[in-house]
Amino acid sequence: MRYRVDPGLYTIGDAGPDSPVFVTASYKMSFDLLRKALPGISAWVLVLDTQGINVWCAAGKGTFGTDELVGRIQSSGLADVVSHRRLIVPQLGAPGIAAHEVRKRSGFQVVYGPVRADDLPAFLKDGLKATGRMRTKHFSFMERLALVPMEIVPAVKGALPVAAALFVLSFFVSGFSAPRALGRTIVVLVSLSASIIAGAVLTPLLLPWLPGRAFSTKGFYAGLLLAVCALLLTGTLYHSNMAMVLAQLVSIPALAAYLAMNFTGASTFTSLSGVQKEMRFALPLEIGATAAGLALWIAALLMGG
């Protein structure tokens, strides 16, 4: 599948010399969102070469940047096509674009549009003015819900080899026995599933309501809740010993915290300095607790669990 739009100048509707110029990224979804937001409006669209990456991420990397914009204005011959000298750039492109430099180097004035393309008609109607609400990036429940599959897929991909390794390891530790193997497999699968549900599903969805500022803390609490659920579930299916109970109680919240920490990148309100602070205290705890959980699990097997 191609997610890219070729960089260059495009028209929407019956664009003329007075039509507004919108700047966007060469990511197909960015381009389509812009186009869909402008029904019945004739406009020019200047697509920058961001290698198929969206505006916000490309601006952070600098590919949606001043140099690329100035170069694209020149190569597209925009100045000969429009009579005005104004570009509407998405606000989330601002980390990469220096408006004053663009003006100096190309003669074009950059006007920052709203965060969301949906608000463009209101922005145009209001004489290129964005309200405070249009200028703010939110992170609604539905937005978080849409990200959940992208958290689950890598988590499951990572968990499958772990489950297989633990299964094999269990035979080395306590020898082969078919009924016990079934019980062990259930414990491992339930524990890993509980961690993933807590860290990759519950934490994103319940983000505003889980206690703590650190994502790891939020994931830890969600993990604790799911660990209790997992124990109740495995307890009815499989008779385990105290070490096995402890192994689950320690490792599920730790793994959930780790997965929750990985949601920082998808969220819209974390900073690099903040994530560095979180990782400094949380990562050693997550690794340590997971190792402790593994040791307890091996101990439980040695005790015949």
């Binding site: 979804m29 969206n54 505006v55 990397k61 990148g265």
Partner: peptide, 13 residues
């Protein structure tokens, strides 16, 4: 994140 081509929605729009 924000580097690979196909998963860009995961870092917001």
């Amino acid at each position: 994140c924000c580097v690979d081509d196909d998963s860009s929605p995961s870092c917001g729009q």
